[in-house]
Amino acid sequence: MLSLAKNTNLLVMFLLELGVLASVGYWGFVVGQNLPVKLLLGLGGPALFIAVWAVFGAANGATIPLTGAARVLLEVLWFGGGAMALVMAGRLAPGLVFAAVYVVNAALRLLWNQ
């Protein structure tokens, strides 16, 4: 049963990663003033987040994998960025839920050494 919970937690982590990209994209398309700006922010924001995650955060594929406090800082900025994107796009409740799910997920990963 614990194995199922651990695997579910890893799935939630992956879904949170996708959620960050969706949140940042949503933010870009909502706050942009005109179509070119919407496209730049809505597509460029997630692209920037993808690049940062690929270089520093991807579990086994990161070019410069971070550990310890640097990894914690990256995750807080990454997932906090997703939550803040929702809040800045006028979606306070989903942003707060996103942040809460991340905190629970991170605590369980820490507890289970994931």
Results as ranks from 00 to 15, higher is better:
residue 1 M to Q: 06
residue 1 M to K: 14
residue 1 M to D: 04
residue 2 L to D: 05
residue 2 L to E: 11
residue 4 L to N: 09
residue 6 K to F: 09
residue 8 T to F: 15
residue 10 L to W: 07
residue 11 L to R: 14
residue 12 V to S: 07
residue 13 M to K: 12
residue 15 L to G: 02
residue 18 L to W: 15
residue 18 L to Y: 13
residue 19 G to K: 06
residue 22 A to C: 05
residue 23 S to N: 06
residue 23 S to L: 01
residue 25 G to V: 10
residue 25 G to E: 08
residue 28 G to E: 10
residue 29 F to C: 04
residue 30 V to L: 03
residue 31 V to W: 10
residue 31 V to L: 11
residue 32 G to W: 10
residue 32 G to S: 12
residue 33 Q to F: 12
residue 33 Q to P: 00
residue 33 Q to E: 14
residue 34 N to Y: 13
residue 36 P to M: 06
residue 40 L to H: 08
residue 41 L to Q: 11
residue 42 G to E: 13
residue 44 G to W: 15
residue 44 G to N: 05
residue 44 G to V: 11
residue 45 G to S: 11
residue 48 L to E: 05
residue 51 A to I: 09
residue 53 W to Q: 03
residue 57 G to T: 08
residue 58 A to P: 00
residue 58 A to L: 10
residue 58 A to K: 12
residue 59 A to C: 02
residue 59 A to D: 05
residue 61 G to K: 14
residue 63 T to V: 12
residue 63 T to Y: 14
residue 64 I to S: 02
residue 66 L to T: 03
residue 68 G to V: 09
residue 70 A to M: 03
residue 72 V to K: 04
residue 74 L to I: 04
residue 76 V to N: 03
residue 81 G to E: 02
residue 88 M to L: 15
residue 89 A to I: 11
residue 90 G to L: 04
residue 90 G to K: 13
residue 91 R to T: 04
residue 93 A to F: 14
residue 94 P to I: 11
residue 95 G to H: 08
residue 95 G to I: 02
residue 99 A to L: 00
residue 100 A to C: 00
residue 100 A to N: 00
residue 101 V to T: 04
residue 103 V to F: 12
residue 104 V to E: 01
residue 106 A to K: 14
residue 106 A to L: 06
residue 108 L to V: 15
residue 108 L to N: 08
residue 108 L to K: 07
residue 108 L to T: 10
residue 109 R to L: 12
residue 111 L to H: 13
residue 113 N to I: 06
